[in-house]
Design a protein around this nucleic acid. Structure first.
Length: 574
RNA sequence: CUCUCCGUAGCUCAGCUGGUAGAGCAAUUGACUCUUAAUCAAUGGGUCACAGGUUCGAAUCCUGUCGGGGAGACCA
C-alpha cells in the first residue's frame, strides 16, 4: 500500500488494476480516429439534423449523471463540451454488461479521457447530445481534478487559488475554460501582429538570446557561463542592437518576438522572462512609427473584439487612431507645474525633492526627468497617448531631435497608466553613438548599475553606415493584459515564474538504510509516513514520542503488523 | 527587502472570547432508462502548512520557518 496517496488516488489506482485484469489497456497506443469536434456539432447540428450520424469523438469526462442503466456524461475536447447519452443495452448489446456496469460505472472517473462513437440527437430537455454506441478508454486519470460545476452561466466552486492556477496550469486549463480563452486570444493577437507586419514586407528573424554584452536596454541581466569558451554569457535584456546590425546588413524591415530576461523584481506587471516585439524599419522616422503603431493597435482591437473600444477593468479604452501626442516636458508641466525644460540637473533635483520624489547623487538629468514623469504623470494616461521628445540623457540609442536642442526623437506609448511601447528615430551617427556610450560609462562610474556597456561590435557596424531607421519595442505581455482584460501578467503567461515547490523528498534514503538501524521491514513505510526522511532523523527523535506516533498510525491505518515496544524504538534512536 | 492578509478533506469554504473537526461538491456502496449544480439512502475520508512555546487542554493564543496573495521599495 502506498501510504503517501490520498484515499481517492488509491481508489483510482485500484481501478487501474481492475481494468488490467479485465484485459483492458487503460493507456492504449493506437491512434483514435476522431472525425469531429464538439464545436462543429454545436455550430452545425441545429440547422441540419441529418448530419453527424456517424461521429467519432474523444475528450475528457468532466461530470457524470448516472441513472441506473442510462447515464449522461459531459465530455470536454479542445473546442468545448458536449453531453453524451450512454445507455447500457446500446454499448453492451449482448448478455455481458461488464462494459457498462463495471468499466463505465465503477472504473471510470471524472478526468478520464475516453473515445466514443455514436450519433448526434437532441434530448427531451433540448440539449444537443451524442447517443453513444461504442465507448473506449484512452487514458485513465489517477489524480482527481478539482470539480467545477456550471449552470446557466453561473460557475460553482471555481478554482481561484493563484498558487494552484499558476503552478498547475494544466489543471487550471482543464477546469477553467475562461483561462484557455485568454491564451487563445493572446496567440490570435500575436498572429494579427505577424500578419500586419508580413503584409508590409517585414522579415521575421531570430537573434541571439545568449549575448556576451547585454545591450539595448537599461536593466540587470541574468549571467550564465559557457564551458567550452570559458566566458560569461548574459541572457538578453533586449535584441535592439542585433536588429539594427541587420538593418546595416541591408534588410529594410526586420522584426522579432523576443523573449527577454531581466533580473529584477517580480510583481503583477513584471516577470523575469517576458516577450517584446521589436521592429526596425529603414528610411523611416518616429512620426511614421507612431502612425504604424496606432494602426496596428487599432487592428488588434478590431480583430479581437470587433471594435476599437476595449474594456479594461472599470474603464473603456479606445484604440481608435490617431492617439494623442504630448511632449514629455508638457506632460510634466501639466501634472506638476515644473518647467523641467528650463532646468539644469541641480534645479531638477531640487524640484523632485520638493515634490517628495526620492533622488540621489547618482541620478543624472535623464533619470531625474524619468522619475518625475514616472511618479507624477505616467498613471494619468489611461487612453493611448504618445509621450514624445525625451531628454537626450535618458536615451543613449536615440537620434537627436531635428529641431529641439537637448531632446531626442523618441516616444513612449502609455495606455492605462502603463508604458506599452518605446520607440525612436534610431541614432545612426557612429561618432555620436560612441560619445553616448561613453556618457553611459560615466554614469556607471557614478554608481548607476543599469547604465549600458559599450558594444564595440555594434559601433563597428554603425561605422559601415546604417540608413536612417525607426525602431520600436512593444511589450507583448502587457499588451495581452490590456487586450484580454487581465490585471496580472501571470494571467497572460502560461507558466509564470514561481518559487520552486518545496521538494517532496523522493528516496533520500532506501528501505535498507532504515532497516540498517534496526527498523523492521514492515515498519519502514510507517516511519516514512510519520515524516522521517532519513535514518538520521529517526536516530535523533524522541523515542517515546516516536512510539506514540507510530502506534497511532498503525491503528489509524489498520495495519496488521505486530505492535512495537518502547525498548525496540529506543534501540533505533539513542 | 519592508508591511499586511492567508494556508482546515481531492475542490470551494465554515469552525465565536482555547474544550479535541464540520458542510456542499468529489469519492465508496446501493436505488433509478432523457438527466443537466440530476435525485435519494448509507459509508469512508484530515499529523487543521511545518517546528517550537504557553496551557490540564491549541485548528484557535505567542514565536520562528516554509509557501502564496495584496501593497510598497526596487525596476523602463
Amino acid at each position: 500500500m502506498a501510504l503517501e496517496l490520498s484515499e481517492q488516488e488509491q481508489f483510482r489506482r485500484n481501478s487501474l488494476e481492475e481494468l488490467y485484469k479485465l484485459g483492458i489497456d487503460p493507456y492504449p497506443a493506437e491512434s483514435y480516429p476522431v472525425n469531429v469536434s464538439t464545436h462543429e456539432i454545436h455550430e452545425q447540428f441545429q440547422a441540419d439534423q441529418t448530419k453527424f450520424q456517424e461521429v467519432c469523438i474523444a475528450g475528457r469526462i468532466m461530470t457524470r449523471r448516472i441513472m441506473g442503466a442510462a447515464s449522461f456524461v459531459d465530455l470536454q475536447d479542445s473546442t468545448g463540451r458536449i453531453q453524451l447519452y450512454i445507455k447500457r443495452d446500446d454499448i453492451c448489446p449482448g448478455e455481458d454488461k461488464t462494459l457498462y456496469n463495471t468499466v463505465f460505472k465503477r472504473l471510470m472517473d471524472i478526468g478520464d479521457i475516453i473515445g466514443i462513437k455514436g450519433y448526434v440527437f437532441i434530448t427531451q430537455m433540448g440539449e444537443i447530445s451524442i447517443h453513444v454506441r461504442e465507448l473506449k478508454i484512452l487514458c485513465k486519470s489517477v489524480k482527481p481534478l478539482p470539480v467545477v460545476k456550471e449552470a446557466e452561466g453561473q460557475t460553482f466552486d471555481a478554482v481561484t487559488d493563484p498558487e494552484f492556477k499558476y503552478r498547475q496550469r494544466y489543471a487550471d486549463l482543464i477546469v477553467n475554460p475562461a483561462v484557455r480563452e485568454v491564451f487563445v486570444k493572446r496567440t490570435r493577437m500575436v498572429n494579427i501582429i505577424r500578419d500586419f507586419l508580413n503584409a508590409q514586407g517585414a522579415l521575421e528573424v531570430d537573434t541571439p538570446v545568449l549575448q556576451s554584452i547585454p545591450g539595448g536596454a537599461a536593466a540587470r541581466p541574468f549571467i550564465t557561463h559557457h564551458n567550452a569558451l570559458d566566458i560569461p554569457l548574459y541572457l538578453r535584456i533586449a535584441n535592439e542592437l542585433y536588429l539594427k546590425r541587420l538593418i546595416v546588413g541591408g534588410f529594410d524591415w526586420v522584426y522579432e518576438f523576443s523573449r527577454d530576461f531581466r533580473n529584477e523584481g517580480m510583481d503583477r506587471t513584471h516577470n523575469p522572462e517576458f516577450t517584446i516585439l521589436e521592429f526596425y524599419v529603414a528610411y523611416r522616422d518616429y512620426f511614421w512609427m507612431m502612425e504604424q503603431t496606432e494602426q496596428m493597435l487599432e487592428k488588434i482591437a478590431m480583430g479581437l473584439h470587433g471594435t476599437a473600444e476595449v474594456p479594461v477593468g472599470e474603464k473603456m479604452i479606445s484604440f481608435k487612431a490617431p492617439f494623442r501626442r504630448l511632449p514629455i516636458y508638457d506632460a510634466i508641466k501639466e501634472y506638476t507645474g515644473v518647467d523641467a525644460a528650463a532646468m539644469d540637473e541641480n534645479e531638477l533635483r531640487a524640484a523632485c525633492k520638493s515634490l517628495g520624489i526620492e533622488v540621489d547623487e547618482t541620478m543624472g538629468k535623464g533619470k531625474l526627468v524619468d522619475a518625475l514623469f514616472g511618479e507624477k504623470c505616467e498613471h494619468h494616461f489611461i487612453q493611448p497617448t504618445f509621450i514624445i521628445d525625451y531628454p537626450v540623457e535618458m536615451s543613449p540609442l536615440t537620434k537627436k531631435h531635428r529641431s529641439k536642442p537637448g531632446l531626442v526623437e523618441r516616444f513612449e506609448l502609455m495606455i492605462n497608466g502603463k508604458e506599452i511601447a518605446n520607440a525612436y528615430s534610431e541614432l545612426n551617427d557612429p561618432i555620436d553613438q560612441r560619445d553616448r556610450f561613453e556618457d553611459q560609462v560615466k554614469l556607471m562610474e557614478r554608481g548607476d548599475d543599469e547604465a549600458m556597456f559599450i558594444d564595440y561590435d555594434f559601433l563597428r557596424a554603425l561605422e559601415y553606415g546604417m540608413p536612417p531607421t525607426a525602431g520600436i519595442g512593444i511589450g507583448i505581455d502587457r499588451l495581452a493584459m490590456l487586450m484580454t482584460n487581465q490585471v496580472s501578467i501571470q494571467d497572460v503567461l502560461l507558466f509564470p515564474q514561481m518559487r520552486p515547490e518545496k521538494k517532496v523528498v523522493a528516496n533520500l534514503a532506501s528501505d535498507a538504510d532504515f532497516m540498517a538501524i534496526g527498523i523492521p521491514e514492515a515498519w519502514v513505510a510507517v516511519v516514512r509516513k510519520a515524516g522521517f526522511k532519513t535514518p538520521a532523523e529517526v536516530k535523533s527523535a524522541n523515542p517515546n514520542k516516536l512510539l506514540h506516533e507510530l502506534s497511532g498510525l498503525r491503528k489509524k491505518l489498520k495495519l496488521e503488523i505486530p505492535s512495537l515496544k518502547i525498548e525496540e524504538v529506543q534501540a533505533w534512536c539513542n
